[in-house]
């Protein structure tokens, strides 16, 4: 009896201590994540400008988005283009550089550090402003191109055909985090695999595709998901480069930039909430697709 009571008391104390330490997070989660999510779902079915009470619209916002809002459709197009270009390019690039960096060389630690610098700085307003300067019509990129090839290149940032690609380039440039994760993955691959392969006469390139890539698939999956989620939410660079307007001709109107414009410029907060929920669904669907497909391309374990 007394033992039972002791155990009970210990359990109660365990629970109390657990929830005491968890309290800040739990309050934060309920008040600043869970409740706002429910609230924004509700707003998404209303017309709401923060001054007057929300007016119920049903699916009105969602219907308008997909049938009566060309800028919205454009922002979807721009964002998808950006995600599908920037994420794969960044990962391929990060993997190649990680491959080069995974050698026993002098100064290799220093090299890795230097290669991380673009990632350290890349997300800042300062670099976005620099990018705008570099790729403007009289910018450095054009004066280099002009002196090398004697051509008159376009005004990259000011041209709706190319503006998005300058932002893709800016994203790919920040490959450092993915590189470090790939490097950590590369270190896990046992040397014996490569030794066995070279005994069998496989060259470096064959080894890369037959050993390195398959062994890294779990890391690739991880990087792919994380990079995709953050790419869908890209904001700062597009805002700075286009002066907050998503121009020229909405060619850099990223999804989140349009959401910000709707919510905090026009104060159409119901509409912006609906946009946020569609974004959530898009990200969830793509994450699910990637995880589903991963059964067929990700190999766990010894890789034999």
């Amino acid at each position: 009896m007394s033992m039972k009571r002791g155990a009970f008391r210990r359990h109660a104390a365990d629970n109390a201590a657990g929830y005491l330490f968890l309290a800040p997070w739990l309050i934060g989660f309920c008040a600043l994540t869970l409740y706002p999510m429910i609230q924004s779902l509700y707003y998404s079915f209303t017309q709401f400008n923060m001054i007057s009470e929300p007016v119920w619209l049903g699916l009105g916002n969602y219907i308008k988005m997909f049938t009566g809002d060309q800028t919205y459709m454009k922002s979807l197009e721009v964002t998808f283009k950006y995600v599908f270009l920037a994420v794969p390019l960044k990962l391929v690039f990060a993997l190649l550089v990680a491959g080069i960096m995974n050698q026993r060389l002098r100064f290799i630690g220093f090299y890795r550090t230097v290669y991380y610098i673009p990632t350290l700085l890349g997300g800042s307003v300062a670099i976005a402003m620099l990018w705008k300067r570099l790729f403007s019509s009289d910018g450095v990129v054009n004066s280099i191109l002009h002196s090398l090839f004697g051509v008159t290149p376009p005004a990259w940032i000011a041209n709706p055909k190319y503006a998005l690609y300058t932002l893709v380039l800016l994203t790919v440039w920040q490959f450092g985090s993915s590189m470090i994760i790939f490097l950590a993955g590369l270190k896990q691959i046992p040397d014996e695999y490569y030794e066995a392969a070279s005994v069998d006469g496989a060259g470096k390139i064959v080894q890369f595709f037959k050993i390195t890539i398959p062994s890294l698939t779990p890391v690739i999956l991880f990087n792919l998901v994380m990079q995709m989620i953050s790419a869908f939410q890209a904001f700062t660079q597009a805002f700075i480069v286009s002066g907050g307007k998503g121009g020229p001709l909405n060619s850099t109107m990223f999804y989140t930039l349009y959401l910000y414009t709707k919510g905090f410029y026009y104060f159409e907060m119901g509409y912006a909430s609906a946009m946020a929920w569609v974004l959530l669904i898009i990200i969830a669907v793509f994450t699910a697709i990637i995880f589903r497909s991963s059964n067929s391309w990700v190999t766990y374990g010894s890789g034999e």
Partner: peptide
């Protein structure tokens, strides 16, 4: 729940947080 919240796009909570 915590792990899922890491992957959540921040924009779903932006507007209600602002109102709050």
């Amino acid at each position: 729940v915590m792990m899922v919240s890491i992957m959540l796009p921040t924009h779903v909570t932006t507007i209600p947080r602002y109102v709050l």
